[in-house]
Write a protein that binds this DNA or RNA. Structure first.
Length: 289
DNA sequence: AATACACCCAACCGCATCCTA
DNA sequence: GTAGGATGCGGTTGGGTGTAT
């Protein structure tokens, strides 16, 4: 579909708004409302495109906009919502009265993302240190055994000792997947609490579901596991029998059993059935924070 | 005081979606 | 059902400002 480019007409002003322009826009909208944004600048006597006017109004001039720094509560809310929704800034903004999507986006990129990254690095360092301590202890104990073995077997089996040491080095590698350079992923933690795979937790929203259906979802979860120790625990331990049993008790698995299917790629009918059987759509609303 | 660098945020751009004729 | 305009949304950028050297 061909679209008419914005501000195609020459002579339309771009760049920062002057206070005069702001006043004209405010006056016009207060009197007439914004109605048709495209027609507004002409009617108001502004040399701007409608898009620019809308942006200026929604992001800056609207009377209900809350100015000033974000409170810790607001930042916490943004972080939580971003974990659930990803970069859906407008949806996040709708949950923060007086804040615009642009503002939230800016705060995220300038403050929160860095802070989370820093926090994560700190956590990661702690975790690696504690892991290293555990491994170090294990190595020490192994060394003791090796030493006693060495004493018992003298020099004849030294090659075995070398092998044991190299194995311990191998074991020393981080358990978690390699760090992803991508930004903190959007959908990971909304469903991370797989230890509680009961019906309550199945009341995820439709958006999460569509993201699950995204073919990138699982790889994203795995690659972004750095962002959540829970995820690491949940997915690195998929071989864990207990967790497999929990999965079998999960609604998805039970529905698969009902439908006699063992695969996820049974087509849209399968997902349609999940939706219809999961109950009312009211369950798919965002949780209160 | 001058310069370089980093950070912040308002605004722009282009794509997606909605709406209507 | 389709075309095309209007609007919404998210990513990106550029200029202003603060800070370090």
């Amino acid at each position: 579909m061909v679209r008419a480019p914005c501000c195609e007409k020459m002579g339309l002003k771009k760049g920062p708004w002057t206070s005069e322009e702001d006043q004209i826009l405010i006056n016009y909208i207060q009197r007439h409302g914004h109605g048709n944004w495209r027609a507004l600048p002409k009617l108001a006597g502004l040399l701007r495109c409608g898009k620019s006017c809308r942006l200026r109004w929604t992001n800056y001039l609207r009377p209900d906009i809350k100015r000033g720094n974000f409170s810790p509560e607001e930042e916490e809310t943004i972080i939580k919502l971003h974990e659930m929704l990803g970069n859906r800034w407008s949806t996040i903004a709708s949950r923060l009265p007086g804040r615009t999507d642009n503002e939230i986006k800016n705060v995220w990129h300038t403050h929160l993302k860095k802070r989370l990254r820093h926090n994560h690095n700190t956590e990661e360092t702690k975790r690696r240190r504690s892991t290293a301590n555990i491994i170090s202890k294990q190595n020490q104990e192994a060394k003791k055994e090796e030493d006693s073995t060495m004493i018992n077997y003298n020099n004849n089996f030294s090659s075995n000792v070398i092998k044991t040491k190299s194995e311990s080095i191998e074991y020393n590698r981080p358990v978690s997947p390699p760090q992803s350079s991508s930004e903190i992923s959007s959908v990971t933690t909304g469903t991370t609490d797989s230890n509680n795979n009961n019906n309550d937790d199945f009341s995820m929203n439709v958006e999460n579901f569509s993201e699950i259906m995204d073919e990138n979802f699982w790889s994203e979860v795995l690659s972004s596991a750095e962002n959540s120790d829970e995820v690491v625990n949940d997915f690195s331990a998929m071989g864990n029998v207990e967790q497999e049993l929990q999965f079998l008790n999960s609604p998805i698995a039970s529905m698969e059993l009902v439908h006699g299917s063992n695969s996820y790629d049974s087509g849209m009918d399968f997902w349609y059935n999940i939706f219809t059987r999961a109950g009312e759509t009211s369950e798919f609303l965002l949780p209160d924070l």
